[in-house]
């Protein structure tokens, strides 16, 4: 087909413009991104504005049901067992929830992909050793790790990040290695080697940029996974400890009141679902948008719908 000739000169638009246009082409992804933006804003500014609201106890409002505006807008989602309004609590908890997930994803991605680059590019004994290390980490029970950290160090946000980061390293390690093994054999790498390019330059200038989109896509997906893992730990009581709050912890704290006050667990759980869902949608979009071969699907869809 003669598509190569016709697509040669797409107009040079701003990168951000192209980005938003591609995002708009997938409505689900667009609203997912919008929702995540709101969550991030809540995480950054929520505690500054609302931390007083979120911790103010109101014994008359204990387990107040949702959708009643008599106590004010803050109580729209109801209140918890101490009468603290749920809406501001969820907004404030966004900070810890996001910080843990972001911290863990960034750390594990940097360490994991660095190890993966080494394991994939060098044929030395290191490669095997790194892979075995990955196996050990993968089969090390993350619960035990969490308990160890909980007992040894204090259950602070930073330490939970540490636990989660360690458990996620193998994902990046394996993905990066597999990709590097494939990219290493491509012809433009041979071309660079013929030129006398150093290994370092080949890895950072030629291999990493090609692997990067995959890593970012996985990181987005993994962000959702880490959020779920953090909530599970908090739920089991071996994650973040009160008075700090995360969404997972809120679900766990509402559990004893399930029969008479379902909303204590329901809303924070919904917050988790909506966030992870948005991340999954965004990751699915990224898989297409970052792949030059598949990008046309979005460009076409946009034309048709809009």
């Amino acid at each position: 087909m003669s598509q190569t000739n016709t697509t040669t000169t797409p107009k040079e638009r701003g990168r951000i413009g192209t980005f938003i246009r591609l995002l708009w082409a997938d409505k689900f992804a667009f609203f997912a991104a919008l929702f995540l933006l709101v969550v991030v804003l809540c995480a950054i500014f929520g505690p500054i504005w609302l931390s007083d609201e979120a911790t103010r106890q109101n014994l008359r409002g204990r387990n107040a049901p949702p959708f009643e505006l008599s106590r004010g807008f803050m109580y729209i989602l109801g209140a918890d067992q101490l009468g603290r309004p749920l809406l501001p609590r969820i907004i404030v908890a966004a900070q810890n929830t996001m910080a843990v997930a972001a911290g863990a994803v960034i750390c594990s991605m940097i360490i994991g992909s660095a190890l993966g680059l080494v394991a994939g590019y060098t044929r030395s004994r290191w490669s095997g050793a790194i892979m075995r290390l990955g196996d050990v980490i993968m089969s090390f029970p993350s619960l035990l790790l969490a308990v160890i950290v909980l007992y040894m160090l204090e259950p602070s946000v930073a330490n939970i990040v540490l636990v989660l980061a360690i458990t996620r390293i193998p994902i990046y390690l394996r993905t990066t290695r597999a990709e590097v093994l494939e990219v290493r054999e491509r012809m433009f790498i041979s071309a660079a080697r013929v030129m006398g390019t150093s290994d370092r330059r080949i890895v950072f200038r030629h291999i990493l940029p090609v692997v990067m989109p995959t890593l970012i896509t996985i990181a987005t997906l993994d962000f959702a996974f880490v959020m779920l893992a953090e909530s599970s730990l908090s739920f089991l009581g071996i994650g973040i400890q009160p008075p700090e709050i995360t969404w997972g912890l809120m679900v766990s704290q509402g559990r004893p009141y399930l029969t008479n006050a379902w909303w204590l667990s329901f809303w924070p759980g919904l917050a988790i679902i909506l966030t992870t869902l948005s991340l999954n949608l965004l990751s699915a979009w990224m898989r297409i948008a970052l792949d030059p071969v598949q990008r046309w699907r979005l460009e076409m869809g946009g034309r048709k719908n809009g």
Binding site: S231, S232, V251, R255, L258, S265, I272, I273, L279
Partner: peptide, 20 residues
């Protein structure tokens, strides 16, 4: 869409909602 929701939901939350 439903598979995405399924993949996004925390299992303890589904368990709790299921029990309720």
């Amino acid at each position: 869409f439903f598979s995405l929701i399924g993949a996004s939901a925390p299992d303890f939350w589904i368990a709790i909602v299921g029990i309720v």
